[in-house]
Structures are given as C-alpha cells and as structure tokens.
Design a protein around this nucleic acid. Structure first.
Length: 574
RNA sequence: GUACCCGUAGCUCAAUUGGAUAGAGUACCGGCUUCCGAUGCCGGCGGUUGCAGGUUCAACUCCUGCCGGGUACGCCA
C-alpha cells in the first residue's frame, strides 16, 4: 500500500517539477494527526532555499484532489500529513486477504546469496554462544528466500585447526583410542588438552605438529580427523534440529583445504606474500586503516582460519556462484572479517561479490559479561532448551482423550523454542542481551508465546463461529467501521514494507517488533469489537475475515522468524 | 598503547538513519469476565537521552573534548 501512496505523491512531485526522490512517504510519527507523512518539502526547501511550508502547501493542494486521501494537511515547519479514506483502506486489505503472498512482492534484484552461520566446532557441544548465530541466520535465511533470493546456507564447520591436533596428541599421551570415542569423550579429551597446553609448552608444540601432520595428509591422522568430524557433525545436527535451524550444506574448513594452496599461489603471483618471522603473511598495514597481517602459513607450515576463510570464499564464488556472502558471528570477530575481506580484495578472487559481516552482541550473564554457569563453565544449549521446556510444561494440562501426551509434548516444544527464539530476535541483533532464564519461558508481554496465543485465539474463534453454523462468511467484504478496526487494518497494510526493510537491513528484529505490534493491534480490536455477537451479519463476516487475515499475517511473520504457530494452545485449568 | 562498539524510564530494549509531544515490555498502582481463550484488554506512575561545548529551521541521532563500560589487536578459532 505504501507503494501506491508513494506513487501518488511521486507523480504530484513530478507534475510540480520537484525532484521525486524527496517524495518519500512513511508511516506517521503522529498517529493522532495522520496515517502517513511526507517530509520531502523540508529537504527540498533547503536545496531550493524556499519556504518549506509554501512548497508543502502546493503539494498538499494537489494531493487533496485525490479522493483516496480523507485528509491532507500541512503542519509544523512543513510536514505533509496524509490520512487515507476508509474505503481505500478496505479495498487495500481486501486485496491482501485474497493474495497468497499477502500483498508482498519479491525483490527486483534477485541474487544468489550464501549464508554462513552456526559455525560450530568439532569436539565442542553447542552452548549458548552458538544460539544467536543459528537463530539469526535461520531467520535471515527465511526472509531472503521469501524475497525470492536464491539462498544457500552453509554451517561452515570448524574442523581443520588446532583443535584436531590437540585432541589427537592428547589421546596419544593418555593412550586412548580415538576411533572408539563418543562425542562426550572427544569433548572431554579436548578440554583436558587445553588445560595441559596452558601449562606445558611442549604439549602445545606436540599439538601443533600433529595439526600440521594431519593437514599434510598423514593417513592415520586423517582417519582420526574424519572420525572426530563425523561424530561431532552428527551430534551438532541433532542440536540444530531441536532448534529448527537448517543448513543446505554441511561443509567445513577442511573442504577449503585444497584451495588454501591456491590462495597461497595467487598471493605469491601477485607479490602479496611476504616472509616475516618465519611465517608467510599478507601485509595490511599500509592502508589508511592499518590492520594486523593475514598469516597465510604459520611457522610450522600449517594454515590457520584466516587462510581457510579466504579459501572458502574462493570456493563459494567458483562452485556456488555466490553473488553475495553473508557471515553471522558475534562482534568479537569484526577485525577478523575486515582483514579477510581486505585480503580478498587485494587478491581479486571475488570481484563484484558482496561480502558482509553481520555482527551481533553476546549473550551475557547478569554481570554484563558473556554468559557463564554458576561453576564458571558455559551453558550447554540442550540444557538450556530443557530448562525452558520445563517452565512451559508447568503451565500445560494433563494429557486427555482429545490431546494426548505426544500432542502436548510437541506443543511444549513449539512454545519453548518459540520463546527462546523470540527472546533472541526481539531487539536489534547488534546489541547483546542479558540472559535471564525466566525470560525464555515468559508468556506475557513481548514474547513468542504472546504471538502464538493470539493466533490460537483466532483459530479458536473461527471454529466456534463455524460450530454455531451461522451464515457462512465466504466472499464477504471487509468494512472499516470503528477505530480499532481501522488501526488493525492500517497496521496489517504495513506488512510489505516491513519485510522489505528487514531483508534490506538484514535485521530480523524489524519483523519481531512489527509482529508484536500487530498482535497487540489485533488484541485491542478483538476485545473492543464483538465478532460472534456483532450488530449485523455483514459486520460479523467482515470482522471474521479481518481476524483471519491478521492470523495469516502473524503466521507468516512467525515463520520468517523460524517460529512455529501451534493451532491450539492448551493451558492448565485453574 | 591503538582501533572499534556502547551509555535512553528502577530493569531489559525501541526510536524508519537529521524531523513534530523520545516509545514498548517488565516492575509497581488502579480498573475490566453472567458474552468470541484474562498467557488478555484499558488507564496511571516513571526521562535534563552519561557530562560539556559545537553545526542546523530542527540533534537520542552528526562533529570536538571529557567521564564511565565493553571488545579486539601475528602464527588459537
């Protein structure tokens, strides 16, 4: 709808000989005054050094001719306030209700986009630190697909660095057989190795040598590497499944192994590779923003994650034909990606490919520092999920004939995961948040379950009315008869712009913010306007259709956030 | 030491990228159920946007300087 209004305003600007790029219409900051506003006259006045109110008045006068506007006024220094007619709004929402995509167009410039999120490592079970990357990445993946982009997601497993060497050399020292270990044992061995290497320089050196040997292709080391990788992948997959976080590709650093040599060759050819302190590096200190160098090859001959990340880009451009690559990690890796992107630029291996790093804040404890459990360790992701489910379970009824134990178990799952995900996506992803267990299972206020509940009520409403067997409201017309209805319709019509903005800014919180305000608008409407007992049949049909449309939008939005919308929400009778 | 990020209501966060009266949730206080799901709705309380300057018709937003917090800085990832 904003598109339509924008066009109307643009054509007026054109007719008046004004630059149409200032004809930007947005949702009004002052809903008491108008539905939409245009601030273009202010910007124009500055350029043309004219009185903004005069320009605004001229535009407003022309807009007034259009009967779709119920009211056009110029206020303050030159804001143009626009209010739409109820007929216009009704016609617009009618079109949305009919449309499979609820009025949303796909992007004009569709791209092939590779998303890199998750980033788990071998031998480490997922912890709260992994939550955000997965949840945010999953949502962005859904949003970009909805916009029509071709999206390929890759988990980019951390399976090629020191951690492998650490495990192998530690197992050797302890006389353990890696090929018989399970995930927990591998993880334990890794932890022990870390502790040992903190004290013991020689052990660290041994691990380094083991890493280099493995990377070099030693058969028995490769066998152990493969085993460790397979066992870890299987475990990590299970965890992501629980969270409904999905990847197209389960590639890892190891898959870029061959390309690492190519990167080194290219760097040499271009004269970018220099020996320094025994390592082969690319200098990045001569630019206006000097950075530490890329270490292509370590003194011991092994490659680090800088090289594998660069090599991975080469592969993604060559094999996947990526036009854009987006990374999701916490902000502590900002410098790393600046270095990698700069090196890629110098190497010229990804011309015209957009490289973006979406950084997000850490999940923090009450002290404002990255979250730790009471004993100082990191909290396991699956433990956290269980805690949230326990909370949700408390509010659920006992299994009944209608809803058996399996149904309730599934419901607990969907609500708990919904609560966790919404909590993670509800404020702008650049800022971190304080981890409060209680918040992950809250039902009230700005939470996932609040939205799920609103949806369940609409479903229930439709069932009830169908049961009463009143005149079927098919093909009835939506009427805008009171303030609550009008507010709801206006809110619903913002959908396309919201999704477009979320996709453009790669910011899922734009959607979580909107989905909540829409659910609120619905609840307000719902408690103010009787539906089953509406004054007339036409009004009843209209409101029912309105509610159904709101439900469809809410479900779509939750889906874009990666959150399930249960048809029915059960609760304990009190 | 250098670079980057942050500081908004008691708490957790917004503010459409420079626009009008800085908004939500939570907490707290008050009201709403013979009637569509009260995990709900309505109302109230709560602010010198860290401090001091500057640019602008207009600053939470941009610039400068302080204060306070965080993060990262060559062979871990």
């Amino acid at each position: 709808m904003e598109n339509i209004i924008n066009k109307k305003v643009e054509s007026i600007f054109g007719a008046l000989g004004l630059d149409a790029k200032f004809a930007v219409v947005r949702v009004s900051d002052r809903p008491d005054l108008s539905d939409f506003q245009c601030n273009g006259a202010l910007a124009l006045a500055k350029i043309m050094s004219k009185n903004p109110r005069e320009i605004a008045a001229q535009i407003a006068a022309a807009l007034q001719e259009d009967k779709d506007f119920a009211r056009v006024s110029v206020d303050g220094p030159g804001f143009i306030n626009l209010s739409m007619s109820n007929d216009f709004l009704a016609a617009q929402i009618e079109a949305v209700a009919k449309d499979k995509r609820l009025g949303c167009n796909e992007a004009e410039d569709k791209k092939k986009i590779v998303l890199d999120f998750g980033g788990p490592n071998v031998a480490k079970s997922l912890h709260v630190g992994h939550l955000r990357s997965g949840v945010i990445g999953e949502s962005v993946q859904r949003i970009l697909r909805f916009m029509g982009h071709e999206v390929v997601s890759d988990v980019h497993f951390g399976d090629w660095g020191m951690q492998i060497g650490l495990i192998i050399s530690e197992a050797e020292k302890e006389g353990l057989d890696i090929l018989k270990m399970n995930v927990a044992e591998i993880s334990e061995t890794y932890k022990k190795a870390n502790i040992r290497c903190k004290e013991d320089e020689q052990a660290k050196e041994d691990a380094r040598i083991a890493t280099a040997k493995m990377q070099d292709g030693d058969a028995s080391f490769r066998k152990m590497w493969k085993y460790i990788r397979d066992v870890s992948v299987e475990d990590v997959k299970k965890n992501y499944e629980k969270l409904d976080v999905n990847f197209d590709l389960w590639l890892g650093e190891s898959d870029a192994h061959e390309d690492c040599f190519k990167i080194i060759d290219i760097a040499k050819e271009k004269g970018l590779a220099v020996m320094d302190d025994g390592a082969l590096i690319i200098r990045l200190d001569e630019t206006n923003k000097p950075m530490p160098p890329i270490i292509l090859k370590k003194t011991d001959g092994g490659v680090g994650y800088q090289t594998t990340d660069i090599a991975t880009i080469l592969g993604r451009v060559r094999d996947l034909k990526a036009e854009e690559i987006i990374y999701f990690t916490d902000q502590r890796q900002a410098l790393h990606f600046e270095q990698v992107f700069e090196a890629v630029e110098k190497l010229g291996i990804a011309p015209n490919v957009g490289l973006k790093h979406i950084k997000f804040g850490t999940v923090n404890g009450p002290d404002g520092k990255p979250f730790k459990t009471r004993d100082g360790g990191v909290m396991n992701l699956s433990d956290m999920i269980e805690l949230s489910k326990d909370k949700v379970r408390e509010s659920m009824p006992e299994p009944s004939a209608e809803y058996d134990a399996a149904y309730i178990a599934n419901l607990v799952d969907e609500v708990a995961i919904g609560a966790i995900k919404f909590q993670d996506l509800k404020s702008s992803i650049a800022s971190g948040y304080i981890f409060e267990l209680d918040d992950f299972a809250k039902f009230e206020g700005k939470t996932g379950p609040y939205i799920q509940y609103a949806i369940a009520r609409i479903n229930s409403l439709e069932n009830k009315i169908a049961e009463i067997a009143t005149a079927a409201p098919r093909n009835d017309v939506i009427l805008v008869s009171n303030k609550e209805e009008r507010d709801l319709v206006l809110k619903m019509l913002q959908l396309p712009m919201v999704i477009k903005r979320a996709a453009g800014e790669i910011e899922p919180s734009v959607i979580s913010d909107y989905v909540y305000s829409l659910a609120q608008a619905f609840s307000t409407f719902y408690s103010a306007s009787p539906i089953a007992a509406a004054e007339t049949e036409a009004l009843k049909a209209s409101r029912l259709k309105m509610a159904g449309t709101a439900r469809d939008i809410l479900v779509l939005l939750l889906d874009l956030l990666g959150i399930k919308a249960p048809k029915v929400i059960l609760k304990k009778e009190i």
